[in-house]
Design a binder for these strands. Structure first.
Lengths: 238, 238
DNA sequence: AAGGTTAGTTAGAGGCTATCACTAAGGTTA
DNA sequence: TAACCTTAGTGATAGCCTCTAACTAACCTT
């Protein structure tokens, strides 16, 4: 959202226009969803005529890709900041939930229905790795309190058969997930549980699948968080 | 997909055309996503000219609504059939996963990014209740094997404060979820965990967020299923 | 056989993405 | 300062799309 490394007035102007286009695109997406994003409408809003925006974005796809990039960067920043506060897994979960509720359509742009042809560029996957790094960092110094609730399968002994405990299969995978992170397999398993369980609650909540069911999704979110931390976190009060 | 209750030849023909339109719509959605669905293209494929389809569907929105309805019905049927086999929670989970992998875009049509304006008609919410009923039925005679892994918070005593255990808040809510189902609060909590955890894994898997991470999503799915059943189910081998 | 109902057509309005050729303005250099 | 090049913005246009309107042709009923 802020490409202010420009030097010449022309580059500055160009960056400013690009930023305004993206801002209006976000507003449009927030109200009508990503599929309703219209370059033409944005141009008119800005007092420009249709094709003018093609000087700034190669097309609709490039604009959306840029928005996805910004969304990932926003989440990565939020995660890094949250990890630095030392509030642990619960803090990270709260950050994720706040980020999601702040702009549901932005959340869906990152974690929602994918467009079949689209493949994320490399820098986006790098941002995803950065997010995973923050999560693994927090997990590194957040020992698990209640082994009985461990999301990995503690009842199984390691083996190499098709029924081997899942966590054992993750050994050393931190290298590919988080740019060489030396997390142990159990932490990787917990990171996956954090990701999938909280996403499971959040995405269904944001999609409105819980409306009219008579409970507060925040409580369900907190309850699922409890299965990840094994203790009563402040997440429970949210 | 089969409205074969028609009597007159005209109604029969009409139902047949509607079915063919929907079938081609599904093919189109499977390859290019729901946002790329084009009435015009379907008409041309069928040797008709554009506006002809408006005799059969009021518009694009009605067609998509109908597809969503069919998708819900398909899942509800699959759940009911699975529940009848007596294979328990694991069988239900396997059914869900097979249904999702069979047509990912169909899954996203039901559980993916919602379009901001859209509100599901009543019969669709009734189908959702039917799905929940199958789940609660299975949970009713699938006692929890390992209390330590209970997805509700067994360590907490019931109270009425803001930090009350989540399951206690669900008391009697089966009435609104599943058309008067008399499920106890613990079963409702487990149903929610089943739903959100498996959806969490499935939606991220189908969206491709696990590609290149070096593990088989089926194993993660099986591992999360284990946290729901508390024992080693056949789901592990999938 | 006459009449109404229904399926299908073409024409067209209005929206969109995107390309092209052109003008006008800005910055740079001789 | 004048000439030049680069860039921003324009209108025109092609080709999609949804959806409406008016018209024709087939079908079924009476």
């Amino acid at each position: 959202m802020a490409e202010t490394g420009a030097t010449t007035p022309r580059e500055r102007y160009r960056a400013q226009v690009r930023a305004e286009v993206k801002q209006r695109a976000w507003e449009q997406i927030a109200t009508a969803g990503a599929s309703a994003l219209s370059l033409n409408a944005i141009a008119k809003q800005m007092g420009l005529s249709g094709p003018a925006l093609y000087r700034y974005f190669a097309g609709r796809d490039e604009l959306i890709t840029e928005l996805i990039r910004d969304a990932y960067r926003s989440l990565a920043d939020a995660f890094r900041a949250s990890a630095a506060t030392g509030t642990g897994l619960a803090g990270l979960a709260h950050t994720l939930r706040a980020w999601a509720l702040d702009d549901p359509q932005r959340y869906f742009l990152v974690y929602g229905t994918p467009v079949p042809g689209y493949h994320a560029p490399d820098d986006v996957t790098a941002l995803a790795a950065e997010i995973m790094t923050s999560l693994l960092d927090v997990l590194a110094d957040a020992p698990y309190a209640d082994p009985a609730d461990d999301p990995s399968d503690p009842s199984d002994r390691p083996s190499d058969g098709p029924s081997a405990p899942f966590a054992a299969r993750l050994e050393g995978l931190g290298r590919e997930w988080a740019d060489g992170h030396p997390a142990p397999a159990a932490a990787l398993r917990r990171a996956l549980a954090f990701w999938t369980r909280l996403h499971g609650v959040l995405s269904l909540e944001l999609a409105g699948h819980f409306t009219g069911m008579g409970f507060d999704p925040a409580h369900l979110f907190a309850a699922e968080l409890t299965t990840l931390t094994g203790r009563e976190d402040d997440g429970r009060s949210g």
